[in-house]
Design a protein around this nucleic acid. Sequence first.
DNA 1: CATCTATGTATCCATTGACAACATTGTGTC
DNA 2: GACACAATGTTGTCAATGGATACATAGATG
Lengths: 200, 200
Amino acid sequence: MKTPKRPYHHGNLRDAVIELALKSLETHGSQNLSLRELSRDLEVSHSAFRRHFADKQALLNALAIHGFEQYGDVLARAIADRDADFDSRLVKVVRSMVRFAGTHPVLLELMFASKNHPDAPPELLEASERALYSGPQLIAEGQKAGRVIPGDPIRLALAPFAAVHGLIALSQNGALLGAPLDRLARETVEQIIMGLRPRD
Amino acid sequence: MKTPKRPYHHGNLRDAVIELALKSLETHGSQNLSLRELSRDLEVSHSAFRRHFADKQALLNALAIHGFEQYGDVLARAIADRDADFDSRLVKVVRSMVRFAGTHPVLLELMFASKNHPDAPPELLEASERALYSGPQLIAEGQKAGRVIPGDPIRLALAPFAAVHGLIALSQNGALLGAPLDRLARETVEQIIMGLRPRD
DNA sequence: CATCTATGTATCCATTGACAACATTGTGTC
DNA sequence: GACACAATGTTGTCAATGGATACATAGATG
């Protein structure tokens, strides 16, 4: 006797596909993400997902949007913690970025690849901009505390934040130059704050 | 009458596949790279390439290695130009990085994605390390000129080089925050050199 | 010249993403 | 409650793909 089957309507297929796809990404890599396999695992037909996603690229875009939202939340929470001085808060933000990269390496790669796709939908570009616009607020508060030079906080935030992203890209399995990325990122951001030009 | 066909032996199929695949990457994107289409364009059977590449991933790895070699050459040439002071030389290196990213966006993405693949072969990891190890030499010369603080040049090179890579990743169609990436990268690296901490 | 190696061709297979037609259920209105 | 429509699923088909295998052709070597 067949096991009792799910009712005809899944009820929450879109979210289920996204959740399972996120898992599959980190387990099997983005190149092995298969709509048919996801459908089998969710016990729906191979075309069911098409009611929720126009095509495979639409699913990938939804995953990237989800990733940017999560990333933005992580950054916003780290920045919202104001119980320490500017330098400590910056360290906390850097660590949260590195941690996200460590737990979602394939998703992060997909996030950046998707936003650079020629047909990237506006909601993906908007989600990426929202997520990547968190740094200026912290820099502005650092300026108020006299810990950061005057200037456009948006532009000034680029150096440390871009550097951390660059370190993430350059790293290998959470390490770079034989050092844990977490420590290396903190040290590099500290160097960026202090500068490489000697202070006579 | 059929047009005279190529001799049975292509003679240089491996290099031809790599060259055409590099073009296809930037034209159609990495997701649309198709071995069969490459074979058709090169007028060989779809299995011919398998004498040169174990599988599709092996071809992707070869493309990434080629990319790192090109990138390393570009950086080495920019660094070897010693006819200017340290700051100008750094600017030149930054511009060459941004230019490479602008002319090879998909290849650059593949390069980083490939090296982070769990089965990345050692020759790919070595090629990536060689390419990404160019900065310390310039930093050491900057230190000799008194333009860079004392310290490990390998570590000190990370801040500017990682930042440029991060800016490349964050950018969209050669621009970021409404500014050309070329200019933004130069300004950001200058900020990194001078530091974000006020100099009393 | 025979043998081995390198490199190509032809055929087959399983899997995939996309598409179209159809089926089932949920919702809203009268 | 009946009906119409919308939402969401199923079934089947197609073309294309990457991979594998057996075979074919040519180059190199002794």
